[in-house]
Simulated scan of single mutants.
Amino acid sequence: MSLFLDRNSDSQAKPATIEVPKFGHLRQDANPILAAHMLQEMYKLVTGWQQELVQIDRDRVEVVASGTILAGWLESRTFQRNAAGEAIPTPYVTVETIDLAIVDPQAGYRLCGLDEYGQLWTRSCSMAEILNVSQAIARYQQLKDLDARKQQVERHIRQVLEDLVLLRIKIED
């Protein structure tokens, strides 16, 4: 596709090719097509971020509507028998993910979290609660991930806006 026509003396229009300069020549060449192309690319990028922000908000609403959200973690401990046959509890360890196929009904589980002052709190968690508690923790993590991505996208948008404002000021001088 060509943008310009070359008029020859024989009255036939021949398409002229547009040569996009190499980036090393950008300082020497005034190329409005390249500038317009760069602006279009920036527009696509920013509108993509805008759409992503809308999708993040939808995803957040969906997560919140799907059930309880819990900022905490599960810990479990097992019991080992000593030489006398007594059950000795091992220290609690953090449960990374809950797979009902590996939930040990003999283990002890507790829910842990931090209060508004950063102090650790714990409460025991029964086997009947394990699935619901782990899903609530997973929802919290999803919200945290969505919030982190939203902040990242907003930072990009703010940076582009700052750069564009500075560029506008610079070219108006």
Rank of each mutant, 00 (worst) to 15 (best):
Q55L: 04
G113M: 08
T68E: 13
I102P: 04
G24P: 07
I171P: 06
A35S: 12
I171Q: 15
E41C: 06
V64M: 11
R123H: 00
L39I: 12
K14Y: 09
L164R: 09
D6K: 10
D10Y: 03
L131Y: 00
R60I: 11
L5K: 14
L53E: 09
Y109C: 01
L70A: 08
D163L: 06
S76G: 03
I88T: 08
Q80H: 08
D29N: 12
D173Q: 11
S11G: 03
D115T: 06
L146P: 01
R110S: 04
G113T: 03
V93Q: 14
P21R: 09
Q55G: 04
I169E: 15
E75R: 01
L34T: 07
L114W: 06
H156N: 10
W121F: 08
G85A: 09
P32H: 10
A136K: 02
A87G: 09
T47G: 07
A87C: 08
K44P: 00
F23T: 11
R123M: 03
S134T: 00
L146Y: 02
L167N: 09
L5V: 12
V64L: 04
T68M: 08
R27G: 15
G85K: 08
V165Q: 15
Q50Y: 05
C125F: 05
P15W: 13
L5R: 14
T122F: 02
Q135I: 06
E96F: 01
E129V: 05
Y117C: 08
Q135W: 02
T94H: 10
R149P: 01
E86N: 11
D57M: 12
F23N: 10
I56T: 02
R27L: 15
T122I: 00
A84W: 04
L164M: 11
E75I: 09
A136M: 02
A65N: 10
G48D: 11
V63L: 00
I169P: 05
V61D: 07
V46H: 04
L45F: 12
L120K: 14
E116H: 09
G24W: 06
D115Y: 01
V95I: 07
Q141A: 03
S134R: 00
K150R: 15
K150V: 04
P15H: 09
H156V: 07
L3I: 05
E116R: 08
P21T: 04
A87E: 15
D104R: 08
Q12K: 13
T47K: 15
G108R: 08
S11R: 13
L45Q: 10
Q151N: 08
T97M: 07
